[in-house]
Design a protein around this nucleic acid. Structure first.
Length: 472
RNA sequence: CGAGAAGUAGCACAACUUGGCAGUGCACUAGUUUUGGGAACUAGGGGUUGCAGGUUCAAAUCCUGUCUUCUCGACCA
């Protein structure tokens, strides 16, 4: 009486097709007429709002205020910081006309807002009393990417960018690492992503930054996804823009700056880390709906029973009830494809026996619980699912990190084993370029400083242990 | 941006080779019967065949251009 319909490509057969199938079946995005500019559907946007809510609270706890800056950057403004322009000019979109009239000066659509903030900071920073300035904005930016994929790489990017100014280098460096920690905790504890955290190399750092720190996640297929960055700018931008303040001794000083950001790409990271052939799997802490109740039949007694259970659920455990007239099988599959962490099935048989089956989305394990205990069991189970999803992802991630000090072995690993390679490195861009040319792996982040090892790429003494990998 | 593949209803596809009424399944609407893993029957609705041009009596079908999607590279969060 029922047929099993497989709409999702097998994950191990074709990972790329699997990903787009999951995104489509879970109804997270739709394509628009413009390449790389996606429509985020209500369920996809709810996940983003869930992320936003958490991060926005954390930012505000640490004293940041939200602002909204212009979307357009006049060309002359973009050109002020030389390293910055060099990095972004190749991928900005230009506005050249207002109606039919050509503009005196063309403007780009912001690819990131450093120069807009700096231009504003120049006007509002006068005294040491004005510092620190801790601003953040939620907005979209545009980068004219050549290859696009839903969530992972788009031309219009929904994100958050923090921009701060400080009296001292120490304070600015602290801010850089503080916000990096906010991202790290968020991804570990809320998104259940086992991330690597570290500094980018000179070659890979943000255009215009002194130091770039990164959050690197590994996807199910072993490919890296950069899921957030925090930059220390020193006084580079401030000097280019002429931002100064008078200190306590009435001396003119230049402030120190940071910026940090993360995007809807994290949604792609969650999908590619946790989901399976049944569809999306969401960690409870980020799932917009944590429990779905499935009445096997929409009778009054069953609805009454569900109401009784939900009245006992603590606030914060969001739930919904699938009271559509679809068949039970359809309802089960729908709860699964949407990645809802717990499903509770209730039918007439259960009412008689005073029990209900609870199904975990992450393991698809089914357990039978007494009706009186369902609410409590849900409350207990959600953190268990959260922890177990993290552990499972961590185990897989670790099993795909290889360590070697030999370049031949490095090359063999690069071409045969998906994942990351941890290697000593001398610190030179030449060696990074060589690795890129010969293996097409790029450095992900520096793990730590070391002594007593040799750089396998040039034979000189190594200064760092560093991760290499392919990236989305 | 280079190489390749594809675009026909919301989704998956047929019709294209050899030009001649635009179809099927799922989904959607109404009704009836159902309901413990993607229900059944009946009756319906939905299409400038991605877009623009060309060839032709006639184009989903042939030609040119363009846009979008997917794959592999290069570039990037």
């Amino acid at each position: 009486m029922s047929k099993l319909v497989t709409k999702i490509t097998d994950r191990d057969t074709d990972f790329a097709a699997w990903y787009t199938d999951v995104v489509r079946e879970a109804d997270l995005v739709a394509y628009s007429n413009v390449k790389g500019s996606m429509i985020i559907r209500p369920y996809g946007y709810a996940i983003w709002e869930s992320m936003q809510n958490y991060l926005d609270k954390e930012f505000k706890k640490l004293g940041h205020q939200n602002v909204q800056m212009p979307m357009f950057i006049p060309e002359s403004l973009l050109n002020i910081e030389k390293e910055h322009v060099k990095g972004f000019a190749p991928e900005v979109a230009w506005v050249t006309h207002g109606g039919d009239t050509p503009l005196e000066e063309r403007m780009c659509v912001r690819p990131t807002s450093e120069v807009l903030f700096c231009d504003h900071f120049k006007n509002i920073i006068k005294s040491y009393r004005d510092l620190p300035i801790l601003y953040n904005q939620w907005c979209t930016i545009v980068r004219w990417e050549k290859t696009t994929r839903p969530f992972l790489r788009s031309r219009e990017i929904l994100w958050q960018e923090g921009h701060t100014m400080h009296k001292t280098e120490v304070e600015a460096r602290e801010e850089t690492l503080r916000m990096l920690k906010v991202y790290e905790d968020f991804q570990r504890n809320i998104l259940a992503l086992p991330v690597l955290v570290g500094r980018k190399t000179e070659k890979e750092k943000f255009a215009g930054a002194e130091e770039t720190y990164t959050i690197e996640a590994m996807m199910y297929d072993g490919v890296a996804l950069q899921n957030g960055t925090s930059h220390y700018f020193g006084q580079g931008f401030a000097k280019s823009f002429g931002i100064t303040f008078l200190d306590e001794e009435n001396k003119l000083q230049t402030p120190y700056q940071t910026s940090w950001g993360c995007t809807t790409r994290m949604i792609g990271g969650v999908i590619m880390t946790h989901s399976d052939n049944h569809g999306l799997v969401l960690p409870p802490n980020i799932a917009p709906i944590k429990v779905r109740f499935v009445p096997i039949k929409n009778t009054e007694e069953i609805m009454e029973c569900i109401k009784n259970i939900t009245s006992k659920l603590p606030e914060g455990i969001t739930y919904d009830i699938d009271d559509s007239d679809k068949s039970p099988g359809f309802k089960f599959a729908d709860a699964e494809v949407k990645g809802i962490p717990i499903r509770v099935e209730i039918g007439l048989r259960d009412l008689e026996e005073k029990v209900a089956p609870l199904v975990r989305r992450d393991t698809l394990e089914k357990m039978t619980v007494s009706l009186d205990d369902v609410a409590k069991e849900i409350e207990n189970l959600l953190p268990v699912i959260q922890a177990s999803m993290y552990d499972k992802a961590l185990e897989r991630r670790d099993s795909m990190i290889y360590e070697t000090e030999d370049y031949q072995e490095f090359k063999t690993l690069a071409s045969t084993k998906p994942g990351f390679i941890l290697s000593p490195w001398c610190g030179s861009t030449e060696c990074e370029d060589k690795v890129k040319d010969e293996t097409s792996l790029k450095s992900r982040c520096i793990k730590e400083e070391i002594e007593g090892k040799t750089c396998p790429f040039c034979g000189k003494p190594a200064k760092y242990m560093i991760y290499f990998g392919r990236q989305y």
